[in-house]
Amino acid sequence: MRDTIPVTEIMVEDVATAAPDATATEAATLMRGEGVSSVVVVRDGEPVGIVTEGDFATELCERGDLGHLELSGVMSTPLTSIAPTASIVDAVELLRSSEIEHLPVVEDGDDHGTLAGILTTTELSYYVPHLAHRPDHHEAEPARRRVRSDTLYERDDWEFEYRSADESTVSVGETARFSKTLSEDDVEAFAEVTGDTNRVHLDAGYAAETRFGERIVHGVLANGLVSAALARLPGLTIYLSQESSFRAPLSIDERATAVCEVVEDLGRAKYRIETTVLDGDDTPVLEGDAVVLVDELPPTAARERDATAVQ
């Protein structure tokens, strides 16, 4: 469980530090040499402040030359820190409430705090990308619900429809539809997880100067809605292949719908599926063709399904 993972398991132990009387130039050189984005300011072994790349950018807007300015004049203080025994969820909440991106891990001693490491949104994003990015959106997320035997959870703002004469099997002519809004949080989390940080998806100013005129959803993320629809077909659906053509861009925060129609029984529990993703105006943004293998549900899930059907 994420709420029990201590910050010590993911923090960076090798922290760049400097004294309060070190110059901004020395700190900037240290950041560049160590490949880090912050320097913790330490006096007599105790962390008392922090200087980040953002601090330098702010100060440069107000001062013409930082060269010989001491860190005591630009550092953020009092220092916001967290204990080594705190969980990474505690760290996310503290970063969120303090509106910071760097969190020194400090162990309190008898005389002063001891610097144990540092945690940033970069480390956290590997474990909790949906928490580390745009927390206000996360707080408003609909609650998870366990309502199906073939998916771990559902959300109230997701919609699924399966049109068939017999909802217990897959047959030619049946159609599955899955809808959800692809939010800014979704796009940013997808970029972090996959590494696809193309600016047309993440940078509004950059995207405005492209042919799209705005940020757009990753095409593969939109294709993921097809996978979501197929996952809810009767049985255990295993993706074998997918061919897709991207027809139009999909705007961020637009509700999209995947439509999957079973068009051919290939034998041995394999089926060919025509796949389409529609935007909020029912314009196709993606069209394609998939092949899936439909296995029986594992025994436990099958019993859960049968018990639900009896109720």
Rank of each mutant, 00 (worst) to 15 (best):
E174A: 12
A165H: 14
D166P: 08
R155Y: 03
D166T: 07
R155V: 07
S149P: 01
A191E: 05
D185V: 01
S183M: 13
V170C: 10
E141I: 13
R144Y: 12
V147G: 08
Y153G: 09
T169P: 05
R148V: 10
A189T: 03
L182R: 00
S183A: 12
A176V: 09
D186F: 02
D166F: 13
D136T: 08
F160R: 05
H137K: 04
R163Y: 15
S171R: 07
E174G: 06
W158M: 07
V187L: 07
E139C: 07
D136M: 08
R163G: 13
E174Q: 14
S164R: 11
E174V: 11
D150W: 03
L182E: 01
D156P: 04
V147T: 15
D196L: 03
S183N: 12
V172W: 03
R199W: 03
Y162S: 02
E154S: 14
L182G: 01
D186E: 12
R145A: 12
D186R: 01
S168Q: 14
L182A: 02
R145K: 14
H137P: 00
P142N: 09
V172A: 07
E174K: 10
G173V: 14
T169W: 10
V187F: 00
D186C: 07
E141F: 15
E139L: 06
P135G: 13
R144N: 06
E174I: 04
V193C: 03
A191H: 09
H137V: 13
S179T: 02
A191I: 07
R146E: 12
T181P: 03
D136Q: 08
D157L: 02
D136W: 05
R155H: 08
T181E: 10
R144D: 05
E188F: 03
T197K: 15
L152E: 06
R177I: 03
A143I: 11
